[in-house]
Design a protein around this nucleic acid. Structure first.
Lengths: 285, 285
DNA sequence: AATATTGTGTAATTAAATTACATAACAACG
DNA sequence: CGTTGTTATGTAATTTAATTACACAATATT
């Protein structure tokens, strides 16, 4: 827990004077880290030793050490905070907020993702006879993206955003096939059905979805990304970005597992695109 | 730039003794922030004032202030640094690196994006009779995502990833129509053609592409995102995530511009999905 | 109401950082 | 190759900041 959070959570256990100190610090943390103990004591209208005691109560060695901790809290606090877009935000404000909350979401995702499951997913994917990516609505574009990536690996890969096609594909799957079902909520009925059908036909089903959701229960392997979403916008935003990053990770794991000579292959695919482009080096679209 | 980076980048301008200080700090930054100036001076085998001068050279007020800055740099771990995936990285390593470089990319994108152009793009989009999103290859999935978002706004929106359809659509466009062309490099010939055709037919063309690229030159409005890409992987990764965030921003700007009663509409769209889901509230797929 | 107990401030002390100054290393120039 | 100017570095003095020790005040506790 960072110091700022700690202050907030232990507000109740503070004495009157300590609380004054806490209030001042929470109100202007940036100012605090550049103030001396004397200045802060004056701002809070308490004595210097009170400030010192306050610092010790928060398990720091003293005032300078406390400032260090505070500085660290602010460093990851300020930029990563998931600030919600407000009715009267201007372009400057909402642009910054969306970037920041997306980054915050990725940060949470990074902390929560289960490396072990990723590793197993990569395992399964590298051994797949065929890989299918299924998603509906917003998740369909994630599935498309995945197809675009894995297609480069010269492995049979399909992607459907049509439930009928998905269903047919699932029914025709067999042992050695891998089906990746993508859904943020994990509650899309049709996709749960697809997952169940694929499993009944011995395919390995990887779910990129919420942990403990109906879809998750139908999967062999669940990659969950519990990302905070700004529900005011009524659109999946950060969650879908996190899903894409996960796809990138799986694709990267795949290429690494396949070794260096395989990477030559990727270069060939990339180079093949050159004809469709105006001069100068670079990657895909 | 954070202090650690600053130290690295200005290592050449240091004197012999200052360099010793820099080496010690870079070798054990965590220790440094908990050391006194005397302790650090001893570790680096220099005098205390030398350490102090070192701090000042890095534009800090003095040693304590330097420690504060250092603490903040360390708080983010190594987050802003775009670390490349290496041949022998394990799952742990490549997962962390991909998250981090994606976040680093978003951070760069945030700093470089032109708010003014975003605002104008939102303007144009809100007044559009029809919106078309075109992308090829990896950018096609971005276009799909955009369609999914704007479709909720109850505005005529189409999305094609087929050059023939794109071409037909472009030829049929007219004054008041908005065409959004998505391409990371901006050098995909077909897409440049589409942009040119659309403009000849009086459509407004927004390019989500590299600044000063062939595609950019065909556009009315260019939203450029110069994001550093890990070219070793031969796949667009970070760039595409940045494009998606940009789509989110445009969509958000759109809804804000339309006002609060419009937002009710979004809620209705979201609620309409409920029937396709297993119980419990939440957003799209 | 008396007495612990805890909280708070004042003043003294200690520790830390900074400044001023002296000397040493080095570079430029005759 | 020595002289002189410049920059770099260290020593010691000074200042500033933080901490401790102690006394007094407030609040509980019996």
């Amino acid at each position: 827990m960072n110091v700022l959070e700690k202050i907030v959570s232990s507000v109740t256990s503070f004495s009157k004077s300590e609380r004054k100190v806490a209030d001042v610090i929470l109100a202007n943390p940036q100012v605090t880290i550049h103030s001396s103990i004397a200045a802060l004591a004056k701002m809070a209208d308490v004595s210097e030793p009170t400030v010192n005691r306050f610092c010790r109560r928060l398990d720091t060695k003293g005032f300078p050490d406390f400032k260090l901790h505070l500085a660290q809290s602010l460093a990851n606090g300020t930029p990563y905070v998931n600030r919600h877009v407000e009715e009267d935000d201007g372009p400057e404000a909402y642009t910054a907020k969306i970037f920041e909350s997306t980054m915050a979401a990725l940060d949470t995702a990074r902390q929560h993702v289960d490396i072990n499951t990723i590793n197993r997913a990569v395992d399964v994917l590298t051994q797949a006879k065929k890989i299918s990516f299924f998603g509906l609505g917003a998740s369909a574009s994630v599935a498309h993206d995945a197809q675009n990536k894995f297609f480069r690996f010269n492995v049979p890969v399909v992607c459907f955003d049509d439930i009928v096609m998905q269903r047919m594909s699932a029914i025709n799957s067999s042992d050695g096939d891998v089906v990746v079902c993508i859904s943020h909520t994990g509650r899309t009925k049709n996709l749960c059905d697809i997952a169940a059908i694929a499993r009944e036909n011995d395919a390995t089903v990887i779910g990129i979805t919420a942990y403990d959701s109906p879809l998750a229960r139908e999967c062999t392997l669940v990659l969950s990304l519990d990302v905070p979403e700004d529900t005011d916008m009524y659109m999946p935003m950060a969650s879908r970005v996190a899903q894409l990053v996960l796809i990138d990770i799986l694709a990267t794991g795949f290429t690494l597992r396949r070794g260096s000579k395989f990477r030559e292959n990727l270069k060939k695919v990339k180079d093949s695109l050159r004809g469709s482009r105006f001069e100068k080096k670079d990657l895909a679209n």
